[in-house]
Design a protein around this nucleic acid. Sequence first.
RNA 1: GCAGCUGUAGCUCAGUUGGUUAGAGCGCCAGAUUGUGGCUCUGGAGGUCCCCCGUUCGAGCCGGGGCAGCUGUACCA
Length: 501
Amino acid sequence: MSDASNKPDAQKKKAAALARLPRGFVDRDAAEIAGVDAMLRTIRQVYELYGFEAVETPAIEFTEALGKFLPDQDRPNEGVFSFQDDDEQWLSLRYDLTAPLARYVAEHFDALPKPYRSYRAGYVFRNEKPGPGRFRQFMQFDADTVGSASPAADAEICMMAADTMERLGIARGDYVVRVNNRKVLDGVMEAIGLGGDENAGRRLTVLRAIDKLDKFGPEGVRLLLGAGRKDESGDFTKGAGLDEAAITRVLAFTGARGADGATTIANLAGVVSGVERGAAGVAELQDMATLFAAGGYDDGRIVIDPSVVRGLEYYTGPVYEVELTFPVTNDEGQVVRFGSVAGGGRYDGLVARFRGEEVPATGFSIGVSRLAAALKSLGKLGAEKPVGPVVVLVMDRDQVAEYQKMVSELRDAGIRAEMYLGSSGMKAQMKYADRRNAPAVIIQGSNEREAGEVMIKDLVAGAEAAKTITDNAEWRAARPAQFAAKRGELVAKIRDLLAAR
RNA sequence: GCAGCUGUAGCUCAGUUGGUUAGAGCGCCAGAUUGUGGCUCUGGAGGUCCCCCGUUCGAGCCGGGGCAGCUGUACCA
């Protein structure tokens, strides 16, 4: 232990360099990786079952393809990680999986079967302020149908979303798929005089206000739709400046949810009566509701809820999101506000950016990282440390070849195994095996070697047996759960031991 | 971006009116135990008190500026 104090200053200084992560990024350990992998497998199975096929696109696209240049400038939006290539073209890390899919479909349009049903998972990146459950790199798992304008395509994805939640272990009633339609909302906008391109900015303000319904309640939203709202810290948020009649109409829309789907749809029809686009949206909701009922999903798994807006400007029809309805606790055990864990909708205009014609498309995205946190809270994410390898202890340095041979035999038999590669003594090697969550260690010192044996210690059974022992001398003498085996039976004995787990 | 709060050991945190050598618990390493995980005991390593400037005989503590983190809010494809 003396070497630490003898460490040269230069080396110390070097070691003091920034061993830290930029904010909004996380490291994942073996347990988390295993848990998320299991999740991804499950989601993939459901998507496959529904007939979607895999596709992968790279993490980087031309900024232009993502459509994220700042207005009236030749620089990308600050929220997007971007850099310039050799030829000065701007490239960006993708911020979702939808825009790259639109690029992919447009590029391979003639080669793809239409409607084109695909899924893909991957990391996306957002250069913005992180917060609880919000990262600058996170994983999404998307499924999309491109080339179908039918509400059946939207309804199918909603049903698949419900199935996926249940397959992931979220009980019926612990989640809800909420569905709305942008056309209905557009109809309301039109009805209150916010139609047309010149009102795009105000429409956006109204959308943002509605999106805050679950945060601030109807009264808060009323303020945001009107003059504005002052929060507890005294910060003032400018409102949309609607008049009283318009505000009442918007709130009538968001509050149109009835006891069942039919009532909700009837209420919505009233709110947008006389506006053609709104009526079209209501009709689509009606179509989808019929499909939900046919599949039995109208039992609370999927509900029509007019308060769903989704921030995305590009949505053109049905929008939907999956919300968890049980309290989620964070690492400190506090209950945290948990937003939606998945969402999506119809974006008929997105592929049109690359091709002249409009291509109808709908799809959704699961926020894998966020959902993983929720599953962890539910105890449904395998957060346990994976079982480690069998560790062969190095008792005598000149016998390394023999120890390595044992490891090879175990590996040839398909058993995870390793020889201890450090330089510490036996006690430290035992601690190492314990920390690696090893199921067993193999000990061969001179005594065993002379007898043509190995000592096998079952660490799990040993820990169990030792629980009742409080005296250290007794603990050491007892040597619980270990047994000698003939050298030739090593693999067979380990195999038996692991099989008994 | 704006506002509030917080920066002391790997982690969680004490630190008196400004006073000499900055502490605890946990964790880590080692020994007690020549070859056995846990418990216990003993010892050890580990610090730019966030950074800079100022006040002072003297600053972890007071003042100013900066940086970082957290929370709220804004934005969020």
